[in-house]
């Protein structure tokens, strides 16, 4: 799973914590600049709320991806699993009458079960069939999206219960915090705790750092990796349910780049693609840096094509500055 020389690992691990801090400062600086330039538009409660809400579904998926990447794995199937889970959830809610909290509950369980099922399949392919994660999850990505299209004939389904859309999708806790944000924060908090403080998280990082060492010490590596992929699938299923609540539609064609967005956020957040080094807080920052940039640029009136150029440049610059810092430290 890992072939990184020890020397590079030293820097990666040492910098994981400080990188998180550094990126948090970068994010704060971005927010500061945009707020200074456009205090009323950018800093308004409405805008803060829309940015948070807009990032919440991606964040749920990115949290799952953090665990997978921490084991030195990868999951390309999240966007497709999101779509599939949403589609079967709508079908089930329809079967339960298409409205009422009973139907919503059934849809919720279905979405989670569907996501978890795809995650388990990913995990089995990786651990039992020994198919490389990149290929295994590329395959399930096609299968999940294809099956969603088979079920729907390629047409987006409506008919999402109104209760779900008006509460989870649009409602707010105490009239201020959108439920979507509450859901994402809850998932993130539990995951951050699980990764940093529990045996589950410790196994995840140990396997990513040196799976052979874990195996020799009696850790059931395959079983744990299976659980991690199942978790990522479960969270994609949850994201699928949130997406239904938000858009009142299965948005079949709209998730082709979710996997890359999630992986970008995780890596930008300081998690190593080689495994063993990961923080959920980093991932949160990694989700918000592109989201804040995008929002700020639109408000500032940056031309659309230049927005893309600027966002790409800022992402590369963020990682480049981080590299410069690492090199400077290495010379001491």
């Amino acid at each position: 799973m890992t072939a990184l020389p020890l020397a590079s690992r030293v820097q990666l691990r040492r910098l994981a914590v400080s990188s998180t801090l550094y990126l948090a400062v970068a994010l704060a600086a971005l927010i500061g600049v945009f707020t200074a330039l456009e205090p009323e538009a950018f800093g308004s409660a409405y805008n803060v709320r829309t940015v948070l809400t807009g990032a919440s579904i991606l964040l749920v998926m990115a949290v799952g991806a953090t665990f997978v990447i921490a084991t030195a794995g990868i999951d390309l199937s999240v966007g497709a699993v999101l779509v599939f889970s949403g589609v079967v959830a709508v079908k089930v809610m329809d079967a339960f009458g298409g409205s009422g909290w009973g139907a919503v509950g059934a849809g919720f369980v279905t979405a989670l079960a569907a996501g978890c099922g795809w995650g388990l399949l990913n995990g089995l392919l990786v651990t039992r069939a020994r198919v490389p994660a990149l290929i295994a999850t590329l395959g399930t990505m096609g299968m999940a999206l294809g099956l969603a299209q088979v079920i729907t004939g390629g047409n987006d389904l409506g008919g999402v219960p109104g209760e779900l859309v008006t509460t989870v999708g649009q409602g707010r806790l105490f009239g201020t915090v959108p439920w979507l944000v509450v859901a994402a924060v809850a998932v993130t908090a539990v995951a951050a705790f699980a990764l940093a403080k529990t045996r589950f998280g410790r196994y995840t990082l140990t396997i990513g750092s040196n799976h052979e060492a874990a195996r020799r010490s009696g850790v059931r590596v395959d079983r744990h990796v299976l659980k991690v992929y199942a978790l990522a699938g479960l969270l994609a299923g949850f994201a699928g349910f949130l997406s239904l609540a938000r858009f009142a539609s299965t948005t079949i064609a709209g998730h082709g780049t979710d996997n890359l967005q999630a992986i970008t956020a995780v890596v930008l957040g300081g998690t190593s693609l080689f495994g063993g080094v990961a923080t959920v807080i980093g991932t949160v920052i990694g989700v918000f840096i592109p989201a804040v940039l995008q929002n700020g640029f639109v408000i500032l009136g940056v031309k659309p094509f230049w927005q893309q150029v600027a966002i790409g440049a800022v992402l590369v610059a963020a990682v480049y500055l981080d590299q410069l810092r690492r090199r400077a430290r290495q010379q001491h």
Binding site: E38, G54, R246, G254, Q294, G296, V298, G301, P304
Partner: peptide, 23 residues
Amino acid sequence: LETQYSGSTPAGATDKLSAVLSA
């Protein structure tokens, strides 16, 4: 106003329009 592009995703459309509404 300046045309905004969604990247062909509903989520992208939501984010762009929300930002435009802020401004």
